[in-house]
Amino acid sequence: MARTSQERGGSSESRASREPPLDPEEQARALCLRLLTGTPRTRRQLADAMRKREIPEEVAEHVLERFQDVGLIDDQAFANAWVESRHRGRGLARRALARELRHRGVAAELVTEAVELLDPEQEEQTARELVRRRLPGTRGLDRDKRLRRLAGMLARKGYSEGLALRVVRDALTEEGQAEEEYGAEQNSSWR
């Protein structure tokens, strides 16, 4: 015979009501710690999360200051790591990285410092690598269509139009020269 919740020691409601509710500061700390456990967050992201939970603004500000003082929140470190990770992993250029950081609430001066860590030569090299990987998938299309598709891919990743067009044209030229050399080798072997 099944026992009722009263017979097992009370309902879950009565147990929850016996525990005092967390005060707003404890709620704010718990929320921030939970959010920071999964992934680094910016100060604004944490503030937005607390606002959604209706934690009073002065309490939220106090908790954020304390977390920043002890180093649990560091928007500059977040921005630097974001630039490194997203450039290496997704091939994003400075412009796209800056847009993402601003969207996450990183201050403009911190965004500038973070994207300046990415030197122009490294950015161009990444663009060349992205085009090199995508180039085979465009074979069979006419040159102009290939140029538009590859330059468009770079533009969506935040590369300037000038850099994108130069890198794609270079890759197409190199591919054409390689094909000519291969064709010449094949012709000479038939003789």
Rank of each mutant, 00 (worst) to 15 (best):
R133I: 06
E181M: 13
V111S: 04
P136D: 04
E25Y: 02
R128D: 03
L154S: 04
L172Q: 11
E26M: 08
L92T: 02
R29F: 05
Q186T: 13
S14M: 14
S160A: 15
E116P: 00
R90D: 04
R143G: 00
E54T: 06
A98F: 14
Q68M: 14
W190Y: 09
E161L: 12
K52I: 05
Y182K: 15
V70L: 00
F78P: 08
K145G: 02
A127L: 11
G158Q: 08
R44W: 08
E109L: 12
D74G: 13
Q122W: 11
A178F: 06
A49V: 05
S17D: 15
T173D: 13
A77C: 00
R149H: 11
Q6I: 14
G158I: 07
R134A: 14
D74E: 09
K52D: 13
A2E: 15
V168T: 06
R94A: 09
G89R: 15
K52W: 07
G158A: 09
L141G: 11
E179A: 14
E25Q: 04
L46C: 09
A79P: 09
R148M: 06
Q186A: 11
V59C: 03
R166V: 03
R104E: 13
S12I: 12
L118Y: 00
A184G: 07
E7K: 01
A16V: 11
E179N: 11
V131W: 07
G38N: 06
A155C: 05
L165A: 05
W190C: 05
M50E: 00
R15Q: 11
K52L: 14
G162A: 13
D75Q: 03
L147G: 02
S11P: 06
P120Y: 09
A127S: 08
C32P: 05
L31A: 01
R132N: 10
R166I: 02
M50R: 00
S14W: 14
R134C: 07
H62Q: 11
E185D: 14
V115E: 01
E181N: 15
Q6L: 15
E116K: 12
